[in-house]
Simulated assay, not measured.
Amino acid sequence: MKRVITVTVINQSGVLNRVTGLLMKRQFNIESITVGHTEKAGMSKMTFVVNVEDEQKVEQLTKQLQKQIDVIKVNDITDKAIVMRELALVKVISPPHLRSEMNSIIEPFRATVIDTAKNVITYQVTGNPEKIEAFIDLLRPYGIKDLTRTGATAFVRETQKPQSTQLSILQ
């Protein structure tokens, strides 16, 4: 099961290494990690997407992370109503005679063309990770020359829905 964990930390040298080291010691496979500044100076937020099979291991991990000296706050936000986004840059082989066809495919994803060459187009797309996967799958038959993804970043929505509704949205 995928879990989304956010960690607010004091922004200083070595904190990322200490936090990821703790995840490694507990044998969590990090699927995605993003780190960036917050609205408060000197603070950063890390967003981890990890695969975990044992719920007790997640609880143990959050408690151990909270004990770290540079860690201000730890939240497992998986079961909450959240906003999650990712950015992908996809360089696709695109001979001129296929461009209109490809543009019609990318239009529903609200992707943008950020670079063009004779036989290659680079698209930028943002959205939840499932949307990014669907976008990549549609472009794969054309020939993906290069691909990079930022990893997911997320936070809790201000308005929370009842628990039963949230679980069906995340699955």
Rank of each mutant, 00 (worst) to 15 (best):
K45L: 09
K45S: 04
M46N: 06
M46G: 00
T47D: 09
T47P: 08
T47V: 12
F48W: 03
F48T: 08
F48N: 08
V49P: 04
V49W: 02
V49S: 05
V50W: 11
V50Q: 08
V50M: 00
N51Y: 15
V52K: 00
V52T: 08
E53K: 15
E53S: 15
E53R: 14
D54M: 06
E55L: 12
Q56L: 07
Q56I: 00
K57I: 07
K57W: 03
K57V: 00
K57D: 09
V58N: 00
V58P: 03
V58G: 10
E59C: 02
E59S: 14
Q60T: 09
Q60A: 07
L61Q: 06
L61E: 00
L61P: 05
T62C: 14
T62E: 01
Q64T: 04
Q64L: 13
Q64V: 07
Q64S: 06
L65C: 03
L65Y: 02
L65T: 09
L65R: 09
L65I: 07
Q66H: 12
Q66G: 07
Q66A: 15
Q68Y: 08
Q68W: 02
Q68K: 15
Q68V: 14
I69S: 15
D70H: 11
D70L: 00
V71C: 06
V71F: 00
V71Q: 05
I72L: 12
I72Y: 07
I72P: 02
I72S: 06
K73Y: 01
K73W: 08
V74G: 01
N75D: 11
N75H: 15
N75F: 14
D76N: 11
D76C: 05
D76Q: 02
I77L: 01
I77T: 02
T78W: 06
T78I: 10
K80D: 10
K80W: 12
K80G: 03
A81C: 15
A81V: 13
A81S: 11
I82F: 01
I82S: 01
I82E: 02
V83M: 12
R85A: 09
E86Y: 09
L87K: 04
L87D: 09
L87F: 11
A88C: 02
A88T: 06
L89C: 06
V90A: 08
V90S: 03
K91G: 03
K91D: 12
V92E: 04
V92A: 09
V92Q: 05
I93L: 13
I93Q: 15
P95Q: 11
P95W: 10
P95F: 05
H97R: 11
H97K: 13
L98G: 03
R99L: 05
R99V: 05
R99D: 09
R99F: 11
S100D: 12
S100R: 09
E101V: 06
E101W: 07
E101M: 06
M102S: 07
M102K: 13
N103Y: 11
N103M: 12
N103A: 14
N103H: 14
S104V: 10
I105E: 04
I105S: 03
I105G: 00
I106A: 02
I106W: 14
